[in-house]
Amino acid sequence: MPVPDALEFFIDPGRCIGCQACIQACTECDTHKGQSMIQLDYVDRAHSTQTVPVVCLHCDSPTCAEVCPADAIKRTEDGIVQTARKPRCIACNNCVLACPFGVPKMQTKMNLMMKCDMCYDRTSVGLKPWCASACPSQALAFGTREEMARLRPHAKPVNTFQFGRQTIRTKVNIMVPRDAPTDIVDVTASMHEPTIGREILDDVFMERPDGGDA
């Protein structure tokens, strides 16, 4: 069964609390049990608790598949870019290097590239992916566009990204402020709310209680 058209994936990094529920959930996924396919990083832990979760964005013309010499990466009709097919993958690492979002992972022990397939076993039967089911902040969310527009009126989904001269359209959306320009290169720039940056942050603690300058 294909993933229903109406159901889409939305990433909203501004909501992320770094709890790693997505990573733990990803390792429970039946298509790659025991391995997490999610990338979760602190932007700059010394100065902020901001973390950014990245799942596969499922490109319309997936670079990973284009650079694959063995034609091991398939994009199914419903727009899901599947994990490398075991009999074909030659573990050349091309996809790992080519993906602009750093998604595919080489499982050296298995000589196989693995990547997020949006929990195909779940989404193809109408369930949410594991990560978006669990995510306590709903930084990773799965549902309809209408639902998202209703729940998050100040944000809009973006799925076109510009990398130099390459334009990439993806199945997965990133939530950005409603009035933001659409060319978003990297997910951290798309944060719904700016982090409390270094300056402001130092300020918060350094302000003299009486309102004078420290």
């Binding site: 709890c19 790693q20 529920a21 733990q24 959930a25 949410k128 669990a134």
Partner: peptide
């Protein structure tokens, strides 16, 4: 509604 933190999942 299905949400869980890492402790619940593991």
């Amino acid at each position: 509604k299905g949400m869980m933190c890492p402790k619940g999942i593991k």
